[in-house]
Amino acid sequence: MELNQEQLSALVDDELEQVGPAISRLLAADGAADRQRWARYHLIGELLRDGGAEAEAAGLGARISQAIAADPPLIAAPKPAEAPARRWLRPAHALAASLAAVGVFGVSQVVSLHRGASEFPLAQPGSNYEGEQGDTLGVSASERAEQRRRLNSYIVNFNEQRDSLTLPKLHPYVRIVGFHNEGKP
């Protein structure tokens, strides 16, 4: 913890040579995203140093509360080595994109998200939703299809176990036979 405080303090005080060349490049950049990232680092440093009076003034608590309340739906978490952390904060896109990917690859699927039962957006026939989401997420179509297959596999396995363990409430396999991609005609 001591080391982190020192590093962050150095960052805030422009003692960049102690932090390393990577952070120097970050601060030298003039993009909006980098400035936001810098502001976050500054806020963290302030929190570590004096308990966060400035953070409070910046409404950090309220924003955290909002984020928790938003309770994001499926997010395709970025691969740690490849994508910046802010991609974690893009709810719903990955799921909708992976839904649409099913049609492209003919991948089997169980999961269906339908209006009225979920807040998730649904890819509609003829829309370019998939492409838009794919671009913003940086998750390839093949990755989305792979996610889809994995999730299907989990749900099918769950379904089989459910049937042997509990009171029969629905016919076994009814969800599978009754599955219909509501995004298709």
Binding site: P73, L74, P78, V111, S112, S140, L151, N159, R175
Partner: peptide
């Protein structure tokens, strides 16, 4: 080569969280 998943999905009354 796996894309990590994070969040909810739903089929009928079945919920999933990754």
């Amino acid at each position: 080569d796996m894309a990590p998943m994070h969040g909810y999905s739903l089929v009928g009354a079945v919920n999933a969280f990754s």
